[in-house]
């Protein structure tokens, strides 16, 4: 199978104004993915499915990911040019080496929702090609194009992503809650979801469970 870079080249030739970025995977798995801008997602997916060299006819896995706002502290090495010599240069003085200083830079990465599709080909028995689509931010209502018209396999999985992450898929034929009940208002797989505080006594509460239990129950009467 072609590499993801080659696929990107071919896609760019076909869809010149599409936003396509290859996201490298730093881990040892070596599964890079292709970030697709949402306006072109459906047509690119159809191209990947029908292209005779790829024939990615099988969409295995659809996943939602919630990336909350992050503060990343990066250490940046910067070379400081030596200050200009105040006095006329003394030819015997050692040459001034440029100074390298390390700076900690705080970078704010705004959060977003992401949907990841793992594509394989049953006809040519290769894969995976990993597609990602992203929302611009985490504000509600988040919406992304649905790929159910391309692969029927996305139907329930996208409904699940909608249910648990609250991403609305435009073009999905039947977008309803699937796992939680219809009256449920929250999106539980989001990182900032707060679950109902219905904790019960445990014989050996510790850590987070103890904290939750303490919040929930009145302190026991003084019995020591």
């Amino acid at each position: 199978m072609e590499s993801l870079e080659q696929i990107r080249e071919r896609l760019l030739a076909r869809f010149p104004d599409a936003a396509l970025t290859v996201i490298a995977n730093p881990g040892p798995a070596g599964q890079p993915s292709l970030l697709v801008g949402s306006p072109h997602a459906a047509s690119i997916a159809a191209f990947l499915r029908d292209d005779p060299a790829l024939r990615l006819d099988y969409c295995s896995n659809v996943t939602g990911v919630d990336w909350p706002d992050r503060e990343v502290v990066e250490t940046i090495k910067r070379t400081v040019p030596p200050p200009p010599p105040a006095a006329p240069a003394d030819p015997s003085a050692p040459p001034v080496t440029p100074k390298v200083i390390e700076e900690k830079v705080k970078r704010h990465i705004p959060g977003y929702f992401e949907v990841v599709y793992h594509l394989y080909s049953m006809a040519l028995k290769h894969g995976p090609v990993i597609l990602r689509t992203r929302t611009a931010d985490r504000t509600d209502p988040a919406s992304l194009p649905s790929l159910t018209p391309i692969w029927r396999a996305c139907e329930f999985q996208e409904r699940e992503v909608y249910d648990l992450f609250g991403i609305r898929f435009t073009g999905h034929p039947d977008l309803r809650r699937i796992l939680m009940w219809d009256e449920f208002k929250d999106y539980p797989m989001r990182k900032d979801y707060v679950e109902p505080d219905d904790y019960e006594w445990e014989p050996t509460p510790h850590g987070a469970v103890l904290d939750k239990a303490r919040r929930h129950y009145p302190a026991p009467p003084e019995s020591r």
Partner: peptide, 23 residues
């Protein structure tokens, strides 16, 4: 079915929250 949880979350006639034995 409520918006966040079952309503009520327990039937008080059969179940009361025990108190925490360890403070």
């Amino acid at each position: 079915f409520g918006a966040h949880d079952l309503e009520p979350p327990a039937n008080p006639e059969v179940w009361q929250a025990p108190s925490l034995p360890r403070s």
